[in-house]
Design a protein around this nucleic acid. Structure first.
Lengths: 130, 130
DNA sequence: TTCGTTGCAAACATTTTGCAGTTTC
DNA sequence: GAAACTGCAAAATGTTTGCAACGAA
């Protein structure tokens, strides 16, 4: 497992790309971004590795925005704001979901709760009419 | 606009179908369900009308679960639980998001907040290992 | 006639997969 | 050599759309 050999460079670059941005990228964004430094990368490789990282818990999926899946290199639980105008996804790091809600959810659902996702939707400052 | 013409109004049936269940159906679920009473309904009509209702605010979209968009006939804000095992979506009607969170989100995002969606993911009682 | 709604099939966009070629060990 | 990773193209999936036909006013 040589991390800097030619062979694994793509996988490492994909992970670094997702983790090195806060735009909550789509697969295509990762592809287009990497392509500037690495013109022979393929979209299939991006998809394959994103699925792998997600399964391994190295990255998280936010679900789809406008029909396109968005990823997050920050796997710590935090709150998101999605702009309905420009499809931007923005972290709201200062907000936290009260821990009491998660245990309440587990009790009411009658099963196990693994993830809690709080998302606000609206218009960002740029898309808000003046 | 005769609501009860010679033939069933497909549009009305689709809306009634989504509103008359708590399974948070997909387009295909609506199609298959309606088809039992209305064998000549088409999937395109289901998609077209669901998109229309969503735009009109008559129903809500929950986003995708397992790559498939799910709808909710209950547009009042409430909390959801998604089972990662069987893709069931269950309401948690007793839970509420503190109002303070929404105003906090608006302040931090610097824009307008329209919707707040809180979703827990885990395993439902059926999918939880004994 | 005019307008809105529908079924069908084709088109579409995103994502996944088969396979052969390459690299690493 | 075996095993892992990749690019390419094809396939699969869920969804949308063009169009002609139909129904209601």
């Amino acid at each position: 497992m040589e991390r800097c050999g030619k062979h694994f460079r793509k996988r490492d670059a994909i992970l670094a790309c997702v983790r090195g941005t806060d735009v909550h990228p789509s697969a295509d964004w990762v592809y287009e971004t990497l392509r500037q430094q690495m013109p022979d990368v393929s979209l299939a490789t991006v998809y394959r590795n994103l699925a792998l990282f997600k399964q391994q818990g190295l990255i998280a999926s936010l679900g789809t925005v406008g029909g396109i899946e968005r990823f997050d290199g920050n796997t710590a639980p935090h709150v998101h704001f999605v702009c309905a105008g420009c499809d931007a996804v923005i972290d709201l790091p200062q907000m936290t979901v009260p821990q009491s809600l998660s245990s309440q959810a587990a009790a009411e659902a009658g099963g196990q709760v693994h993830v809690c996702q709080l998302t606000f939707t609206g218009l960002c400052s740029r898309c808000s009419p003046k």
